[in-house]
Design a binder for these strands. Structure first.
Length: 438
RNA sequence: GCGGAGGUAGCUCAGUUGGUAGAGCGCUAGGUUGUGGUCCUGGAUGUCGCGGGUUCGAGCCCCGUCCUUCGCCCCA
């Protein structure tokens, strides 16, 4: 029985052309993060299972993670997200770090789920967090960073929407305005989170079912439906418009407008699950209906670092998946053609040329060119065909005549032009080409 | 965990009421013993996902199973 050539379910092989694409995306993430003063960090792919038990429930551990016992009987889990890990790392050096701490990473994460569009079992996730800032300037910086990343890929504002809301505000509205208890709030948050997927009548019926008879008599359902139509902070019920949560959101939106971020909107239906977020939350969605999964998600989580037994640290963070990012870039035709790293394929002619050519090869490599040599000894047309198929931009011919004269034929493999040049000239021509192609 | 669609050449796919397997692209050899893409001529494509069943006979029908994909659930 032959072995299967397929990669593990929900995971991908990265052939060189796939890896090139991944490198393109990661390079942009890194470059823009570093431009904002963020430093890269990483951590082990395995964590003690306890790290994820603190907030998530046992069911998520059992059904949606890769969890197993190591040989010492410890329960370990392959990391499913980076936020608990980075919180652990900051807590571990709580006293010695210089705040604000600005960190980013691009870990691979594993979740045990059914794969579908935009969601696989193994994926890479960009994470950026700023620790130690209580003011809304932290949210502004993180959202601006996100916006700059998208613009660095060539995205136009009509290709994506930045949605903003506040968990604190939702808590006030659902609690004080609608009069719900904590269990009702939690159920309603999950329901509103799915609102766009449900037929409206179905949503209304399920919302009604959450309410108690007395809440119904008080008109809570109508108040909720009216509330969910809100598209602007000024439309919120009187008495809530000047709460700290609303003022913070308004300040953030004003700051973003001043930073030329034109597509940030208040979205009251944005919930981001029921997890560690404490106040402002945000998501970035693709406007292409094919890609209905959010690309970026984040918010403020001031309580997590304190779980490690140190004084709490305020944090705002954002994360983005590589799969949804790639879907976005493909949908909007924002992916440039990726070229191989190899600049030149050397075609050898004649007997024992490989040995005679070593000095020339060393010189080209010393000068900084990426040089592959065809060492198969086949006919020249085969050598050229292979170089073209590999996507290499140039071929250099080396044979006795060239070695004697010091003039080598440099062939441009995309248009077929060919000229004899000195090595020095070849190096500068190829370097110019590489610079222009980016 | 649940549901839809699909698995035939390296790739994209066709295959009639069940009658021994096809196209395009790609691959390969030559026309060209130091030069690719166009052109001409020849060649090889295969456990029809896998296992069983029905039948004289199965790529096609039935059962099971694995895999891919889209959605539901979930989404930290």
């Amino acid at each position: 029985m032959a072995l299967s050539t397929q990669p593990y379910k929900g995971a991908r092989d990265f052939y060189p052309e796939d890896k090139r694409l991944q490198k393109y995306i990661f390079d942009k993430w890194r470059k823009i993060s570093e431009r904002f003063g963020y430093e890269e960090y990483d951590a082990p792919i395995l964590e003690p299972t306890d790290l994820y038990l603190s907030k998530g429930n046992q069911e998520i551990i059992d059904e949606q993670t890769y969890t197993f016992q190591d040989r010492g009987g410890r329960s370990v889990t392959i990391r499913t997200e980076m936020t608990p890990t980075v919180s652990r790392m900051v807590a571990g050096k709580r006293q010695e770090l210089a705040y604000p701490v600005r960190w980013y990473s691009i870990p691979n994460l594993w979740r045990y789920e059914r794969a579908q569009r935009g969601r696989l079992r193994e994926f890479w996730q960009y994470n950026a967090d700023i620790f130690g800032v209580e003011g809304v300037e932290a949210e502004h910086e993180i959202v601006l960073l996100t916006d700059q990343i998208l613009k660095a890929f060539g995205a136009k504002p009509d290709m994506y929407v930045i949605q903003l809301s506040s968990r604190k505000l939702i808590d006030e509205l659902f609690g004080n305005y609608l009069g719900l208890d904590n269990t009702q709030k939690e159920t309603l948050i999950r329901l509103v989170d799915r609102m766009k997927k449900l037929p409206y009548e179905s949503f209304v019926a399920q919302a009604d079912a959450i309410l108690s008879p007395s809440q119904r008599d008080a008109g809570a359902l109508d108040k909720l439906l009216e509330l969910l139509k809100t598209t602007d902070l000024s439309q919120l019920p009187e008495g809530f418009r000047s709460s700290p949560a609303v003022l913070g959101l308004q300040q953030l939106m004003d700051m973003l407008a001043n930073s030329m971020v034109t597509n940030a909107v208040f979205d009251i239906t944005l919930m981001r699950g029921f997890d560690y977020y404490t106040d402002i939350v945000f998501e970035v969605s693709d406007t292409d209906p094919e890609n209905n999964r959010s690309m970026f998600g984040g918010g403020r989580y001031d309580g997590l670092v304190g779980l490690f037994g140190v004084d709490p640290v305020p944090v705002v963070g954002i994360a983005a998946g590589d799969v949804t990012m790639q879907n976005f870039l493909e949908s909007h035709d924002l992916l440039p053609k990726q070229r191989p790293e190899t600049d030149v394929s050397v075609v050898l002619a004649g007997a024992n040329t490989y040995e005679k050519a070593q000095r020339v090869l060393a010189e080209l490599r010393e000068a900084g060119l990426n040089v592959a040599v065809d060492i198969t000894g086949r006919k020249l047309d085969k050598q050229i065909k292979a170089a073209v198929k590999q996507g290499v931009p140039y071929a250099i011919f080396i044979g006795d005549a060239e070695l004697a004269s010091g003039q080598y034929k440099l062939r441009n493999l995309s248009d077929g032009t060919e000229e004899a040049r000195s090595l020095e000239r070849i190096v500068s021509l190829v370097k110019d080409y590489r610079k222009n192609k980016g």
